[in-house]
Design a binder for these strands. Structure first.
Length: 540
RNA sequence: GCCCCCGUAGCUCAGCUGGAUAGAGCAUCGGACUUCUAAUCCGAGGGUCGCAGGUUCAAAUCCUGCCGGGGGCACCA
Protein backbone atom coordinates (compact mmCIF):
# COMPACT_ATOMS: atom_id res chain seq x y z
CA UNK A 1 0.00 0.00 0.00
CA UNK A 2 1.38 3.36 -0.98
CA UNK A 3 1.56 6.29 1.42
CA UNK A 4 -1.39 8.10 -0.12
CA UNK A 5 -3.49 4.98 0.01
CA UNK A 6 -2.46 4.57 3.63
CA UNK A 7 -3.67 8.09 4.32
CA UNK A 8 -6.93 7.41 2.51
CA UNK A 9 -7.38 4.23 4.51
CA UNK A 10 -6.90 6.17 7.74
CA UNK A 11 -9.55 8.66 6.68
CA UNK A 12 -11.96 5.86 5.87
CA UNK A 13 -11.22 4.15 9.15
CA UNK A 14 -11.79 7.26 11.23
CA UNK A 15 -14.93 8.06 9.27
CA UNK A 16 -16.26 4.55 9.83
CA UNK A 17 -15.68 4.79 13.56
CA UNK A 18 -17.70 8.00 13.69
CA UNK A 19 -20.71 6.26 12.20
CA UNK A 20 -20.47 3.08 14.21
CA UNK A 21 -18.48 1.06 11.72
CA UNK A 22 -20.63 1.68 8.66
CA UNK A 23 -18.03 0.81 6.08
CA UNK A 24 -20.34 1.25 3.13
CA UNK A 25 -20.73 4.92 3.92
CA UNK A 26 -17.06 5.29 4.79
CA UNK A 27 -16.03 3.67 1.51
CA UNK A 28 -17.48 6.62 -0.38
CA UNK A 29 -15.29 9.21 1.26
CA UNK A 30 -12.67 10.66 -0.98
CA UNK A 31 -9.14 11.86 -0.48
CA UNK A 32 -8.41 14.68 -2.87
CA UNK A 33 -5.79 17.23 -3.67
CA UNK A 34 -7.14 20.68 -2.81
CA UNK A 35 -7.08 23.34 -5.51
CA UNK A 36 -4.81 25.74 -3.64
CA UNK A 37 -1.78 25.14 -1.41
CA UNK A 38 -3.15 27.08 1.55
CA UNK A 39 -5.95 24.49 1.69
CA UNK A 40 -3.55 21.79 2.72
CA UNK A 41 -1.82 18.85 1.09
CA UNK A 42 -4.84 16.58 0.98
CA UNK A 43 -8.48 17.02 1.79
CA UNK A 44 -11.51 14.89 2.37
CA UNK A 45 -15.21 15.38 1.85
CA UNK A 46 -15.98 12.79 4.55
CA UNK A 47 -17.76 15.17 6.88
CA UNK A 48 -20.10 16.34 4.12
CA UNK A 49 -21.13 12.74 3.54
CA UNK A 50 -21.41 11.74 7.19
CA UNK A 51 -23.20 14.81 8.54
CA UNK A 52 -26.75 13.74 7.57
CA UNK A 53 -26.28 10.39 9.27
CA UNK A 54 -24.94 12.00 12.41
CA UNK A 55 -27.62 14.68 12.35
CA UNK A 56 -24.95 17.26 12.85
CA UNK A 57 -23.38 20.07 10.86
CA UNK A 58 -20.68 19.11 8.38
CA UNK A 59 -18.19 21.49 9.96
CA UNK A 60 -18.76 20.02 13.40
CA UNK A 61 -18.31 16.51 12.02
CA UNK A 62 -15.17 17.63 10.22
CA UNK A 63 -13.76 18.88 13.53
CA UNK A 64 -14.34 15.53 15.20
CA UNK A 65 -12.89 13.68 12.24
CA UNK A 66 -9.83 15.90 12.31
CA UNK A 67 -9.19 15.16 15.97
CA UNK A 68 -9.60 11.44 15.36
CA UNK A 69 -7.20 11.52 12.44
CA UNK A 70 -4.55 13.47 14.28
CA UNK A 71 -4.68 10.91 17.07
CA UNK A 72 -4.54 8.03 14.63
CA UNK A 73 -1.75 9.28 12.39
CA UNK A 74 0.50 10.97 14.90
CA UNK A 75 3.63 12.43 13.32
CA UNK A 76 2.41 11.96 9.78
CA UNK A 77 0.19 15.01 10.12
CA UNK A 78 1.24 18.51 11.11
CA UNK A 79 -2.36 19.57 11.56
CA UNK A 80 -5.86 19.47 10.14
CA UNK A 81 -8.23 22.29 9.33
CA UNK A 82 -11.94 22.55 8.74
CA UNK A 83 -12.74 24.66 5.72
CA UNK A 84 -15.57 25.79 3.51
CA UNK A 85 -18.83 23.90 3.84
CA UNK A 86 -17.18 21.09 5.78
CA UNK A 87 -14.06 19.91 4.05
CA UNK A 88 -11.30 18.61 6.25
CA UNK A 89 -7.90 19.69 5.02
CA UNK A 90 -4.85 17.66 5.95
CA UNK A 91 -1.36 19.08 6.27
CA UNK A 92 1.17 16.27 6.11
CA UNK A 93 4.54 16.50 7.80
CA UNK A 94 7.91 16.71 6.09
CA UNK A 95 8.72 13.33 7.55
CA UNK A 96 5.68 11.78 5.90
CA UNK A 97 6.78 13.16 2.53
CA UNK A 98 10.33 11.93 2.99
CA UNK A 99 9.16 8.46 3.95
CA UNK A 100 6.99 8.51 0.83
CA UNK A 101 9.98 9.58 -1.27
CA UNK A 102 11.97 6.69 0.13
CA UNK A 103 9.21 4.41 -1.10
CA UNK A 104 9.33 5.92 -4.59
CA UNK A 105 13.08 5.46 -4.77
CA UNK A 106 12.78 1.88 -3.54
CA UNK A 107 10.15 1.09 -6.19
CA UNK A 108 12.55 2.35 -8.86
CA UNK A 109 11.45 1.61 -12.38
CA UNK A 110 8.42 -0.18 -11.02
CA UNK A 111 7.01 2.95 -9.39
CA UNK A 112 3.39 3.09 -10.50
CA UNK A 113 3.27 -0.50 -11.66
CA UNK A 114 0.63 -1.65 -9.22
CA UNK A 115 -0.26 -5.23 -9.92
CA UNK A 116 -3.92 -4.66 -10.62
CA UNK A 117 -4.38 -6.88 -13.63
CA UNK A 118 -2.07 -9.49 -12.21
CA UNK A 119 -2.41 -12.74 -14.04
CA UNK A 120 -5.21 -11.62 -16.32
CA UNK A 121 -4.44 -12.24 -19.97
CA UNK A 122 -5.66 -9.81 -22.57
CA UNK A 123 -5.70 -9.92 -26.31
CA UNK A 124 -5.30 -6.43 -27.68
CA UNK A 125 -6.17 -6.05 -31.32
CA UNK A 126 -5.47 -2.73 -32.96
CA UNK A 127 -4.65 -1.02 -36.25
CA UNK A 128 -5.69 -4.00 -38.40
CA UNK A 129 -5.56 -1.66 -41.38
CA UNK A 130 -6.49 -3.15 -44.71
CA UNK A 131 -3.25 -4.43 -46.20
CA UNK A 132 -4.01 -2.74 -49.49
CA UNK A 133 -2.41 0.60 -48.86
CA UNK A 134 -0.13 2.65 -46.63
CA UNK A 135 -0.90 3.42 -43.02
CA UNK A 136 -2.38 6.91 -42.85
CA UNK A 137 -3.11 9.33 -40.05
CA UNK A 138 -6.42 7.72 -39.19
CA UNK A 139 -4.64 4.43 -38.54
CA UNK A 140 -1.88 6.29 -36.77
CA UNK A 141 -4.23 7.34 -34.02
CA UNK A 142 -5.37 3.80 -33.45
CA UNK A 143 -1.78 2.62 -33.63
CA UNK A 144 -0.51 5.11 -31.06
CA UNK A 145 -3.51 4.56 -28.84
CA UNK A 146 -3.45 0.77 -28.96
CA UNK A 147 0.29 0.69 -28.48
CA UNK A 148 0.19 2.98 -25.45
CA UNK A 149 -2.73 1.07 -23.99
CA UNK A 150 -0.80 -2.16 -24.46
CA UNK A 151 2.27 -0.74 -22.75
CA UNK A 152 0.12 0.58 -19.92
CA UNK A 153 -1.78 -2.66 -19.41
CA UNK A 154 1.46 -4.63 -19.40
CA UNK A 155 2.91 -2.24 -16.84
CA UNK A 156 -0.18 -2.71 -14.72
CA UNK A 157 0.23 -6.45 -14.66
CA UNK A 158 -1.81 -7.75 -17.56
CA UNK A 159 -0.34 -10.40 -19.80
CA UNK A 160 -0.96 -8.63 -23.10
CA UNK A 161 -0.86 -10.14 -26.57
CA UNK A 162 -0.74 -7.45 -29.23
CA UNK A 163 -2.38 -8.49 -32.42
CA UNK A 164 -2.85 -7.20 -35.95
CA UNK A 165 -5.68 -8.82 -37.91
CA UNK A 166 -4.75 -9.03 -41.57
CA UNK A 167 -7.73 -8.76 -43.90
CA UNK A 168 -6.19 -10.86 -46.65
CA UNK A 169 -9.26 -12.77 -47.72
CA UNK A 170 -11.88 -10.62 -49.42
CA UNK A 171 -12.25 -9.25 -52.90
CA UNK A 172 -10.01 -6.29 -52.17
CA UNK A 173 -6.99 -8.54 -52.52
CA UNK A 174 -7.88 -9.23 -56.12
CA UNK A 175 -8.56 -5.57 -56.70
CA UNK A 176 -5.12 -4.70 -55.50
CA UNK A 177 -3.60 -7.24 -57.88
CA UNK A 178 -5.63 -5.89 -60.76
CA UNK A 179 -4.53 -2.36 -59.97
CA UNK A 180 -0.88 -3.39 -59.92
CA UNK A 181 -1.25 -5.18 -63.21
CA UNK A 182 -3.03 -2.31 -64.90
CA UNK A 183 -0.28 0.10 -63.95
CA UNK A 184 2.40 -2.30 -65.13
CA UNK A 185 0.67 -2.62 -68.47
CA UNK A 186 0.14 1.12 -68.77
CA UNK A 187 -3.60 0.64 -68.64
CA UNK A 188 -6.04 2.69 -66.61
CA UNK A 189 -6.58 1.44 -63.08
CA UNK A 190 -10.08 0.02 -62.58
CA UNK A 191 -12.61 2.46 -61.18
CA UNK A 192 -12.91 0.56 -57.91
CA UNK A 193 -9.19 -0.27 -57.77
CA UNK A 194 -6.39 1.38 -55.82
CA UNK A 195 -4.97 4.59 -57.19
CA UNK A 196 -2.18 5.69 -54.88
CA UNK A 197 1.40 6.06 -56.10
CA UNK A 198 2.44 3.21 -53.87
CA UNK A 199 0.62 0.68 -56.06
CA UNK A 200 3.28 0.84 -58.75
CA UNK A 201 6.04 0.10 -56.24
CA UNK A 202 4.65 -3.13 -54.84
CA UNK A 203 5.73 -5.63 -57.47
CA UNK A 204 8.51 -5.26 -60.09
CA UNK A 205 7.15 -4.48 -63.55
CA UNK A 206 8.11 -7.74 -65.23
CA UNK A 207 6.45 -9.90 -62.60
CA UNK A 208 3.48 -7.57 -62.46
CA UNK A 209 2.88 -8.14 -66.15
CA UNK A 210 3.35 -11.88 -66.25
CA UNK A 211 2.35 -13.46 -62.95
CA UNK A 212 -0.89 -15.32 -62.57
CA UNK A 213 -3.38 -12.79 -61.18
CA UNK A 214 -3.89 -14.69 -57.92
CA UNK A 215 -0.17 -14.99 -57.31
CA UNK A 216 0.30 -11.37 -58.25
CA UNK A 217 -2.46 -10.32 -55.86
CA UNK A 218 -0.90 -12.16 -52.98
CA UNK A 219 2.56 -10.91 -53.78
CA UNK A 220 1.29 -7.33 -53.91
CA UNK A 221 -0.50 -7.78 -50.64
CA UNK A 222 2.55 -9.26 -48.97
CA UNK A 223 4.64 -6.33 -50.18
CA UNK A 224 2.07 -3.89 -48.91
CA UNK A 225 1.91 -5.58 -45.55
CA UNK A 226 5.69 -5.46 -45.29
CA UNK A 227 5.57 -1.71 -45.85
CA UNK A 228 2.89 -1.33 -43.22
CA UNK A 229 5.03 -3.23 -40.78
CA UNK A 230 8.05 -1.06 -41.45
CA UNK A 231 6.00 2.12 -41.07
CA UNK A 232 4.54 0.98 -37.78
CA UNK A 233 7.85 -0.16 -36.38
CA UNK A 234 9.42 3.14 -37.31
CA UNK A 235 6.55 4.69 -35.35
CA UNK A 236 7.42 2.52 -32.37
CA UNK A 237 4.53 0.10 -32.75
CA UNK A 238 5.03 -3.63 -32.88
CA UNK A 239 2.85 -6.70 -32.67
CA UNK A 240 3.18 -10.16 -31.20
CA UNK A 241 0.86 -11.74 -33.72
CA UNK A 242 -0.03 -10.89 -37.30
CA UNK A 243 -3.17 -12.92 -37.75
CA UNK A 244 -4.28 -13.87 -41.25
CA UNK A 245 -7.98 -13.85 -42.00
CA UNK A 246 -7.30 -16.17 -44.89
CA UNK A 247 -5.87 -18.75 -42.53
CA UNK A 248 -9.24 -18.99 -40.83
CA UNK A 249 -10.83 -20.05 -44.09
CA UNK A 250 -8.01 -22.25 -45.33
CA UNK A 251 -7.61 -24.01 -42.01
CA UNK A 252 -11.27 -24.87 -41.59
CA UNK A 253 -11.79 -22.58 -38.63
CA UNK A 254 -14.73 -20.86 -40.29
CA UNK A 255 -16.55 -24.12 -40.92
CA UNK A 256 -15.81 -25.28 -37.40
CA UNK A 257 -17.17 -22.10 -35.88
CA UNK A 258 -20.30 -22.30 -38.02
CA UNK A 259 -20.82 -25.92 -37.05
CA UNK A 260 -20.45 -25.05 -33.42
CA UNK A 261 -22.97 -22.24 -33.61
CA UNK A 262 -25.40 -24.45 -35.51
CA UNK A 263 -25.04 -27.12 -32.87
CA UNK A 264 -25.79 -24.56 -30.20
CA UNK A 265 -28.91 -23.55 -32.11
CA UNK A 266 -27.71 -20.01 -32.65
CA UNK A 267 -28.09 -19.91 -36.43
CA UNK A 268 -30.96 -20.17 -38.88
CA UNK A 269 -31.51 -20.11 -42.63
CA UNK A 270 -33.68 -17.59 -44.36
CA UNK A 271 -33.97 -16.39 -47.96
CA UNK A 272 -31.06 -18.55 -48.97
CA UNK A 273 -28.70 -17.08 -46.41
CA UNK A 274 -27.37 -18.31 -43.09
CA UNK A 275 -27.93 -16.00 -40.14
CA UNK A 276 -26.76 -15.64 -36.56
CA UNK A 277 -29.58 -14.86 -34.17
CA UNK A 278 -27.85 -11.88 -32.56
CA UNK A 279 -31.15 -10.26 -31.61
CA UNK A 280 -31.41 -12.87 -28.87
CA UNK A 281 -28.34 -11.30 -27.32
CA UNK A 282 -28.87 -7.60 -27.49
CA UNK A 283 -28.35 -6.71 -31.14
CA UNK A 284 -31.08 -4.77 -32.94
CA UNK A 285 -31.17 -7.13 -35.92
CA UNK A 286 -29.92 -10.54 -36.90
CA UNK A 287 -26.74 -10.77 -38.94
CA UNK A 288 -25.88 -12.70 -42.06
CA UNK A 289 -23.04 -15.21 -41.86
CA UNK A 290 -23.27 -16.80 -45.31
CA UNK A 291 -24.77 -14.74 -48.09
CA UNK A 292 -27.33 -16.23 -50.45
CA UNK A 293 -24.58 -16.40 -53.09
CA UNK A 294 -22.63 -18.71 -50.80
CA UNK A 295 -19.96 -16.20 -49.79
CA UNK A 296 -19.16 -15.81 -46.10
CA UNK A 297 -19.47 -12.30 -44.72
CA UNK A 298 -16.75 -10.40 -42.95
CA UNK A 299 -18.67 -10.98 -39.74
CA UNK A 300 -18.39 -14.70 -40.36
CA UNK A 301 -14.59 -14.41 -40.32
CA UNK A 302 -14.82 -12.32 -37.18
CA UNK A 303 -16.65 -15.12 -35.45
CA UNK A 304 -14.11 -17.71 -36.46
CA UNK A 305 -11.48 -15.30 -35.16
CA UNK A 306 -13.38 -14.91 -31.88
CA UNK A 307 -13.47 -18.67 -31.56
CA UNK A 308 -9.75 -18.79 -32.23
CA UNK A 309 -9.10 -16.25 -29.50
CA UNK A 310 -11.38 -18.20 -27.19
CA UNK A 311 -9.35 -21.34 -27.80
CA UNK A 312 -6.22 -19.46 -26.88
CA UNK A 313 -7.73 -18.83 -23.46
CA UNK A 314 -7.70 -15.05 -23.14
CA UNK A 315 -9.51 -13.59 -20.16
CA UNK A 316 -10.21 -10.40 -22.02
CA UNK A 317 -10.51 -9.33 -25.65
CA UNK A 318 -9.89 -5.70 -26.43
CA UNK A 319 -10.57 -4.27 -29.87
CA UNK A 320 -9.40 -0.82 -30.80
CA UNK A 321 -11.45 0.36 -33.74
CA UNK A 322 -12.22 3.57 -35.54
CA UNK A 323 -15.52 5.15 -34.62
CA UNK A 324 -16.98 4.02 -37.95
CA UNK A 325 -17.01 0.50 -36.52
CA UNK A 326 -18.86 1.51 -33.43
CA UNK A 327 -22.07 -0.18 -34.58
CA UNK A 328 -20.31 -3.55 -34.51
CA UNK A 329 -20.20 -3.73 -30.77
CA UNK A 330 -23.58 -5.42 -30.20
CA UNK A 331 -23.00 -8.15 -32.76
CA UNK A 332 -19.50 -8.89 -31.54
CA UNK A 333 -20.66 -9.23 -27.97
CA UNK A 334 -23.61 -11.31 -29.12
CA UNK A 335 -21.36 -13.62 -31.10
CA UNK A 336 -18.95 -14.01 -28.21
CA UNK A 337 -21.82 -14.84 -25.91
CA UNK A 338 -23.25 -17.30 -28.40
CA UNK A 339 -19.89 -19.06 -28.38
CA UNK A 340 -20.16 -19.39 -24.64
CA UNK A 341 -18.16 -16.37 -23.52
CA UNK A 342 -18.89 -13.65 -21.00
CA UNK A 343 -19.96 -10.54 -22.91
CA UNK A 344 -18.16 -8.26 -20.48
CA UNK A 345 -14.87 -9.86 -21.44
CA UNK A 346 -15.16 -8.31 -24.89
CA UNK A 347 -14.29 -4.68 -24.96
CA UNK A 348 -14.60 -2.49 -28.01
CA UNK A 349 -12.97 0.86 -27.89
CA UNK A 350 -13.82 3.30 -30.63
CA UNK A 351 -11.49 6.21 -31.23
CA UNK A 352 -12.70 9.30 -33.04
CA UNK A 353 -11.21 10.40 -36.32
CA UNK A 354 -8.39 12.72 -37.15
CA UNK A 355 -9.68 15.42 -39.42
CA UNK A 356 -7.22 16.98 -41.73
CA UNK A 357 -7.44 20.69 -42.06
CA UNK A 358 -5.90 21.97 -45.22
CA UNK A 359 -5.03 25.61 -45.61
CA UNK A 360 -7.86 27.82 -44.49
CA UNK A 361 -10.08 25.32 -42.76
CA UNK A 362 -11.55 23.03 -45.40
CA UNK A 363 -11.82 19.59 -43.93
CA UNK A 364 -11.09 16.47 -45.81
CA UNK A 365 -11.87 12.93 -44.92
CA UNK A 366 -9.30 10.34 -45.79
CA UNK A 367 -10.06 8.02 -48.64
CA UNK A 368 -7.62 5.32 -49.48
CA UNK A 369 -9.01 4.66 -52.90
CA UNK A 370 -8.49 8.22 -54.05
CA UNK A 371 -5.04 8.52 -52.58
CA UNK A 372 -6.12 11.64 -50.68
CA UNK A 373 -4.49 11.27 -47.32
CA UNK A 374 -1.45 11.97 -45.25
CA UNK A 375 0.50 8.84 -44.57
CA UNK A 376 2.03 7.90 -41.26
CA UNK A 377 5.44 7.95 -42.92
CA UNK A 378 4.90 11.50 -44.05
CA UNK A 379 3.77 12.61 -40.63
CA UNK A 380 6.76 10.98 -38.97
CA UNK A 381 9.13 12.47 -41.51
CA UNK A 382 7.76 15.95 -41.01
CA UNK A 383 7.33 16.16 -37.25
CA UNK A 384 9.21 13.17 -35.85
CA UNK A 385 8.05 10.12 -33.93
CA UNK A 386 8.02 11.74 -30.50
CA UNK A 387 6.05 14.82 -31.54
CA UNK A 388 3.65 12.77 -33.64
CA UNK A 389 2.98 10.29 -30.87
CA UNK A 390 2.51 13.04 -28.33
CA UNK A 391 0.14 14.88 -30.62
CA UNK A 392 -1.99 11.77 -31.03
CA UNK A 393 -1.75 10.54 -27.45
CA UNK A 394 -2.19 13.75 -25.51
CA UNK A 395 -5.85 13.95 -26.42
CA UNK A 396 -8.67 11.69 -25.39
CA UNK A 397 -9.42 9.03 -27.98
CA UNK A 398 -13.03 10.11 -27.63
CA UNK A 399 -12.51 13.53 -29.17
CA UNK A 400 -12.16 14.24 -32.83
CA UNK A 401 -8.90 16.02 -33.39
CA UNK A 402 -8.07 18.57 -36.00
CA UNK A 403 -4.73 18.29 -37.65
CA UNK A 404 -3.31 20.90 -39.94
CA UNK A 405 -0.15 19.23 -41.17
CA UNK A 406 1.38 22.49 -42.34
CA UNK A 407 0.76 24.00 -38.95
CA UNK A 408 1.90 20.89 -37.13
CA UNK A 409 5.12 20.89 -39.12
CA UNK A 410 5.77 24.55 -38.52
CA UNK A 411 4.97 24.27 -34.82
CA UNK A 412 6.47 20.89 -34.12
CA UNK A 413 9.23 22.49 -32.04
CA UNK A 414 6.51 23.93 -29.78
CA UNK A 415 5.16 20.50 -29.02
CA UNK A 416 4.85 20.07 -25.24
CA UNK A 417 6.59 16.73 -25.59
CA UNK A 418 9.90 18.58 -25.76
CA UNK A 419 9.15 20.31 -22.50
CA UNK A 420 8.74 16.95 -20.80
CA UNK A 421 11.81 15.49 -22.45
CA UNK A 422 13.77 18.60 -21.56
CA UNK A 423 12.95 18.20 -17.90
CA UNK A 424 14.18 14.62 -18.06
CA UNK A 425 17.37 15.56 -19.88
CA UNK A 426 17.99 18.41 -17.47
CA UNK A 427 17.90 16.05 -14.52
CA UNK A 428 20.22 13.64 -16.27
CA UNK A 429 22.81 16.30 -16.99
CA UNK A 430 22.45 17.73 -13.53
CA UNK A 431 23.08 14.41 -11.81
CA UNK A 432 25.96 13.76 -14.18
CA UNK A 433 27.78 16.72 -12.63
CA UNK A 434 28.02 14.91 -9.32
CA UNK A 435 31.00 12.84 -8.41
CA UNK A 436 30.65 9.11 -9.10
CA UNK A 437 28.65 7.31 -6.45
CA UNK A 438 27.15 10.49 -5.04
CA UNK A 439 23.64 9.66 -6.26
CA UNK A 440 23.72 6.20 -4.70
CA UNK A 441 24.98 7.60 -1.43
CA UNK A 442 22.25 10.22 -1.46
CA UNK A 443 19.54 7.62 -1.87
CA UNK A 444 20.72 5.68 1.17
CA UNK A 445 19.25 7.51 4.11
CA UNK A 446 17.08 10.54 3.60
CA UNK A 447 16.59 13.11 6.31
CA UNK A 448 15.36 16.68 6.41
CA UNK A 449 17.61 18.92 8.44
CA UNK A 450 15.56 21.97 7.50
CA UNK A 451 11.92 22.45 6.49
CA UNK A 452 11.09 21.32 2.98
CA UNK A 453 10.72 24.09 0.44
CA UNK A 454 7.16 24.49 -0.90
CA UNK A 455 8.38 23.54 -4.37
CA UNK A 456 9.89 20.36 -2.96
CA UNK A 457 6.62 19.51 -1.27
CA UNK A 458 4.58 20.25 -4.38
CA UNK A 459 6.79 18.12 -6.60
CA UNK A 460 6.79 15.23 -4.15
CA UNK A 461 3.03 15.26 -3.87
CA UNK A 462 2.77 15.38 -7.65
CA UNK A 463 4.99 12.32 -7.94
CA UNK A 464 2.93 10.48 -5.35
CA UNK A 465 -0.16 11.04 -7.48
CA UNK A 466 1.43 9.34 -10.47
CA UNK A 467 0.37 5.77 -9.61
CA UNK A 468 -3.21 6.98 -9.33
CA UNK A 469 -2.96 8.67 -12.70
CA UNK A 470 -1.81 5.37 -14.15
CA UNK A 471 -4.61 3.52 -12.41
CA UNK A 472 -7.12 5.95 -13.90
CA UNK A 473 -5.52 5.78 -17.30
CA UNK A 474 -5.56 1.99 -17.27
CA UNK A 475 -9.04 1.48 -15.89
CA UNK A 476 -10.57 4.05 -18.18
CA UNK A 477 -8.47 2.98 -21.14
CA UNK A 478 -7.31 6.56 -21.34
CA UNK A 479 -3.57 6.78 -21.97
CA UNK A 480 -3.86 10.52 -22.63
CA UNK A 481 -3.96 10.91 -18.87
CA UNK A 482 -0.37 9.74 -18.77
CA UNK A 483 0.59 12.63 -21.02
CA UNK A 484 -1.26 15.09 -18.82
CA UNK A 485 0.43 13.64 -15.77
CA UNK A 486 3.87 13.80 -17.36
CA UNK A 487 3.41 17.42 -18.35
CA UNK A 488 2.42 18.38 -14.82
CA UNK A 489 5.36 16.53 -13.34
CA UNK A 490 7.69 18.32 -15.74
CA UNK A 491 6.19 21.64 -14.72
CA UNK A 492 6.54 20.93 -11.03
CA UNK A 493 10.06 19.72 -11.51
CA UNK A 494 10.95 22.91 -13.36
CA UNK A 495 9.57 24.99 -10.49
CA UNK A 496 11.63 22.91 -8.05
CA UNK A 497 14.70 23.36 -10.23
CA UNK A 498 14.13 27.11 -10.29
CA UNK A 499 13.68 27.39 -6.52
CA UNK A 500 15.97 24.74 -5.11
CA UNK A 501 19.64 24.45 -5.88
CA UNK A 502 20.54 20.78 -6.07
CA UNK A 503 24.20 20.31 -6.95
CA UNK A 504 26.23 21.95 -4.23
CA UNK A 505 23.31 22.56 -1.90
CA UNK A 506 24.24 22.97 1.76
CA UNK A 507 24.24 21.15 4.04
CA UNK A 508 25.16 17.74 2.68
CA UNK A 509 21.85 16.19 3.82
CA UNK A 510 19.88 18.76 1.87
CA UNK A 511 21.87 18.07 -1.27
CA UNK A 512 21.19 14.36 -0.74
CA UNK A 513 17.51 14.93 -0.34
CA UNK A 514 17.30 17.05 -3.46
CA UNK A 515 19.26 14.52 -5.45
CA UNK A 516 16.72 11.94 -4.38
CA UNK A 517 13.82 14.18 -5.34
CA UNK A 518 15.35 14.85 -8.75
CA UNK A 519 16.07 11.18 -9.24
CA UNK A 520 12.49 10.25 -8.38
CA UNK A 521 11.19 12.83 -10.84
CA UNK A 522 13.52 11.57 -13.55
CA UNK A 523 12.43 7.99 -12.99
CA UNK A 524 8.79 8.92 -13.10
CA UNK A 525 9.16 10.98 -16.25
CA UNK A 526 11.04 8.16 -17.91
CA UNK A 527 8.27 5.74 -17.01
CA UNK A 528 5.55 8.07 -18.30
CA UNK A 529 7.36 8.74 -21.56
CA UNK A 530 8.10 5.06 -21.97
CA UNK A 531 4.44 4.16 -21.61
CA UNK A 532 3.66 6.65 -24.35
CA UNK A 533 6.37 5.25 -26.58
CA UNK A 534 8.23 8.53 -26.47
CA UNK A 535 11.97 8.62 -25.91
CA UNK A 536 13.45 9.98 -22.67
CA UNK A 537 16.74 11.57 -23.76
CA UNK A 538 19.73 12.06 -21.46
CA UNK A 539 20.64 15.26 -23.25
CA UNK A 540 18.99 17.71 -25.59
C1' G B 1 -36.16 8.62 -37.91
C1' C B 2 -33.04 5.68 -34.23
C1' C B 3 -28.05 4.80 -31.73
C1' C B 4 -22.89 6.45 -30.23
C1' C B 5 -19.09 10.47 -29.58
C1' C B 6 -18.11 15.65 -29.18
C1' G B 7 -19.37 21.21 -28.07
C1' U B 8 -14.77 24.59 -22.20
C1' A B 9 -9.98 31.11 -23.47
C1' G B 10 -8.41 33.80 -30.27
C1' C B 11 -6.49 28.37 -31.74
C1' U B 12 -5.56 23.03 -30.15
C1' C B 13 -7.27 20.58 -26.03
C1' A B 14 -7.28 18.77 -20.44
C1' G B 15 -10.74 18.65 -16.41
C1' C B 16 -16.58 15.07 -16.82
C1' U B 17 -17.85 7.73 -11.89
C1' G B 18 -20.45 15.83 -8.53
C1' G B 19 -16.57 19.50 -4.49
C1' A B 20 -13.62 25.05 -2.68
C1' U B 21 -11.70 31.08 -7.00
C1' A B 22 -12.61 26.20 -14.31
C1' G B 23 -6.80 24.80 -16.23
C1' A B 24 -2.50 23.73 -19.84
C1' G B 25 0.02 24.44 -24.49
C1' C B 26 0.12 27.70 -28.60
C1' A B 27 -0.88 32.77 -30.04
C1' U B 28 -0.72 38.25 -28.03
C1' C B 29 1.66 41.92 -24.66
C1' G B 30 5.61 43.18 -20.84
C1' G B 31 10.02 41.44 -18.30
C1' A B 32 14.53 37.82 -17.09
C1' C B 33 20.49 34.57 -19.55
C1' U B 34 28.16 36.22 -14.82
C1' U B 35 24.04 31.40 -11.25
C1' C B 36 22.98 22.83 -11.70
C1' U B 37 20.63 23.12 -19.91
C1' A B 38 16.88 29.99 -21.98
C1' A B 39 13.91 23.64 -26.04
C1' U B 40 13.60 27.73 -19.87
C1' C B 41 11.48 31.15 -16.27
C1' C B 42 8.35 35.43 -14.19
C1' G B 43 4.11 38.63 -15.06
C1' A B 44 -0.47 40.41 -17.89
C1' G B 45 -4.75 40.22 -20.78
C1' G B 46 -8.28 36.59 -22.48
C1' G B 47 -14.48 32.36 -20.22
C1' U B 48 -22.76 33.31 -20.33
C1' C B 49 -17.93 25.67 -19.67
C1' G B 50 -23.42 25.38 -26.90
C1' C B 51 -28.76 26.86 -24.98
C1' A B 52 -32.84 25.99 -21.44
C1' G B 53 -34.84 23.46 -17.46
C1' G B 54 -34.13 19.80 -13.33
C1' U B 55 -31.55 16.92 -9.14
C1' U B 56 -28.05 18.44 -4.98
C1' C B 57 -25.40 21.47 0.80
C1' A B 58 -22.47 21.73 -3.97
C1' A B 59 -23.13 20.98 -11.44
C1' A B 60 -18.21 22.13 -16.74
C1' U B 61 -19.27 17.20 -14.41
C1' C B 62 -25.49 13.78 -13.20
C1' C B 63 -30.88 13.78 -15.66
C1' U B 64 -34.39 15.76 -19.60
C1' G B 65 -35.22 18.69 -23.93
C1' C B 66 -33.28 21.68 -27.83
C1' C B 67 -29.22 23.63 -31.19
C1' G B 68 -24.55 22.62 -33.75
C1' G B 69 -20.41 19.13 -35.55
C1' G B 70 -18.65 13.97 -36.42
C1' G B 71 -19.71 8.71 -36.93
C1' G B 72 -23.04 4.56 -37.48
C1' C B 73 -27.82 2.23 -38.68
C1' A B 74 -25.94 -3.70 -45.60
C1' C B 75 -26.73 -10.62 -47.97
C1' C B 76 -19.79 -3.83 -48.25
C1' A B 77 -14.91 -4.79 -46.78
Amino acid sequence: MGPVEHLHEAVRGSAASLVGGDCALAAAVKLERPPRPELGDYSTNAALLLAPRLESSPREVAGRLGAALEARLGGALDRTEVAGPGFLNLFVSDQWLIDALTGVIAAGERFGAVEIGAGESANLEFVSANPTGPVHIGHARGAAYGDALGRLMSFRGYDVTREFYVNDYGSQVRKLGESVRALALGEPVPEDGYHGDYVATLVPGERARTLDIDELSHEALAACLAQIRVSLERFGVSFDVWFSERSLHDGGAVEAALARLAELGETFSQEGALWLRTTARGDDRDRVLIRSDGQPTYFCSDIAYLENKRSRGFDRLVYVWGSDHHGYEPRMKAAWEALGGDRDAVELIAFQFVHLVVGGGARTAMSKREGEYVTLDELVERVGVDAARWFLLARSHDTTVELDVELATRQSSDNPVYYVQYAHARIASMLAKLEPGRVERALGALVAVEPLHPSERTLLKRLLAFPYDLADAAERRAPHRIAASALEIAQEFTAFYRDCRVVGAEPYETESLRIAIARAAQQTLATALGLLGVSAPEAM
